[in-house]
Design a protein around this nucleic acid. Structure first.
Lengths: 197, 197
DNA sequence: ACAAATGAATGAATCGTTCATACAATGTTA
DNA sequence: TAACATTGTATGAACGATTCATTCATTTGT
C-alpha cells in the first residue's frame, strides 16, 4: 500500500474517532455515565449502533478517555487565569466566560458527572484523583484574595465564596443543558455580583 | 375486633405510608425517577425490599403521589408570598429561604426531576401540566416589577431575570444534594445580589 | 477484493414486582 | 392463665420483563 493512501486512511480513522468522542462528550456531560446509552452516542454522531466498537473498545474506554482530556483542558484553563490581563474581577469574568463556552462547558460537566456517578471506570477515577476540582478552587483563591485587598470583592472566607460561585455556575450549566438553551453568557456580570460588594 | 385496636392499626398504616413516602421523596428528589431504585427507598426507610408493595401499588404510584403533594405545597407557598410583610426584596428573601428549607427543597427538586425525566407516570404529568413552574415565575413577576419601580431591583426583562435567579437556586440545591451538605441559607443575600443593582 | 458500515441478534445484568415463609400481636377456649 | 388459633405484618430470595453493551452476519462503497 502506498504511503499516501495509508496516511489518508489513518487520518480518516482519527476523524471518525473525534466524531464519536464529540458526540459522546455531549451526551455524557448531559446524562452521566449510566444515563448515556451507546445508541444515543451513535444517534448523536449520525452513525449506526455498532460502529463505535470498530474505533473503541468499550463505553468505559470512551468515558475514561474523555475524562482524561477534560482534566487536561481544565488544567490548562486554570494555569492561564492568573496571567490574564486586567483586574481580578476581569480575570474571573474571563475565566467564567471561558467555562461557559460550549466546549469547556461540556468538559466541566463531564467531570462533575464523573464525580457524582457510580461505577466510574477506574482509569477515570484515578485521573480525577490526580487532579481534583478542589485544586481548581485553590488556584483561583489568590485572585479572589487580591480582589479583596483591592476592595473589589466582598469580605469573608474566600473558599466558601468561591464554592458558592462555582456551584452557581455549575447549576446554571446543568439547568441550561436540560431545559431550553438560554444563553447565560450575557448574564455573567450578574453572577459576579455574588462575589462583589 | 374492638374499635380502639382497629383505629390504632389504621394509624400505624398511615405512619408506615408516611415513612415510605418520606424516604422516597428524599431519593426521588436527588436521583430522579429512573435513578431511584425501590431498594434505595427501602434502605432509606429502613425496611425490607418488598414491604413498600403492601402499602403502595407501584413505584410509579409513589412518585405520582409525591408530585401531587409537591404541587399542592408549591401552590400554597406562592399564594402567600405577595401577602408577606416588607419590601419586595424582603419578600423574595423570605420566599427563597422557604424554598431552601429542607422539606420544601425536596419538593422543589422533585418537581424539577419530574419535568426533566423520561417516562414520568401520566398521573404526575397531568398534575404538572395543570400547575407548571412557569406559573411560579408569573406569580413572582409582580413583586419583581414593584421592586424595579421602587428602584431596588435592576432594570431588564423581569421574566429572564427570575429564570436566571430560580435556575441558580435550583442548581444550588442540586449541588447541595449531591455534594457535601453545606448550608446555603446564610448566603441567600448574596444570591439576591443577582437581582438587585 | 477489502475495508467500512449497518442494524438485527445475543446474552448478561438490572430492577420492579411477587410470593413462600417467618414472626408478632391479638383473640378464643377451657 | 395457659395453650392454641387467627390475623395482619415483615422479610428477602426468586421471578421475569426489560434494557442495553456488545457482537456478527450481511451489505455498501471504492
Amino acid at each position: 500500500m502506498p504511503r499516501i493512501a495509508r496516511a489518508q486512511a489513518e487520518q480518516a480513522i482519527d476523524e471518525r474517532k473525534e466524531q464519536i468522542k464529540k458526540a459522546a462528550l455531549k451526551i455524557f456531560a448531559e446524562k452521566g455515565l449510566s444515563g448515556t446509552k451507546m445508541s444515543m452516542i451513535a444517534e448523536e454522531a449520525g452513525i449506526s449502533q455498532g460502529l463505535s466498537y470498530r474505533y473503541f473498545e468499550s463505553k468505559d474506554e470512551i468515558f475514561a478517555l474523555l475524562v482524561e482530556e477534560a482534566i487536561e483542558e481544565s488544567r490548562n484553563a486554570i494555569q492561564d487565569i492568573g496571567k490574564l490581563p486586567g483586574s481580578p474581577i476581569e480575570q474571573l469574568r474571563s475565566f467564567t466566560l471561558h467555562l461557559l463556552d460550549e466546549d469547556h462547558k461540556q468538559y466541566f460537566l463531564l467531570v462533575q458527572q464523573a464525580l457524582t456517578s457510580e461505577g466510574v471506570p477506574s482509569k477515570a477515577r484515578e485521573a480525577i484523583e490526580r487532579y481534583s476540582p478542589q485544586d481548581t478552587i485553590e488556584q483561583i483563591i489568590p485572585i479572589f484574595v487580591r480582589g479583596q485587598q483591592e476592595g473589589q470583592f466582598a469580605e469573608g472566607d474566600p473558599y466558601k465564596r468561591l464554592i458558592l460561585f462555582l456551584s452557581v455556575v455549575n447549576g446554571l450549566m446543568l439547568q441550561d443543558a436540560k431545559a431550553m438553551g438560554m444563553d447565560w453568557t450575557q448574564e455573567v456580570d450578574r453572577l459576579l455580583n455574588i462575589l462583589t460588594k
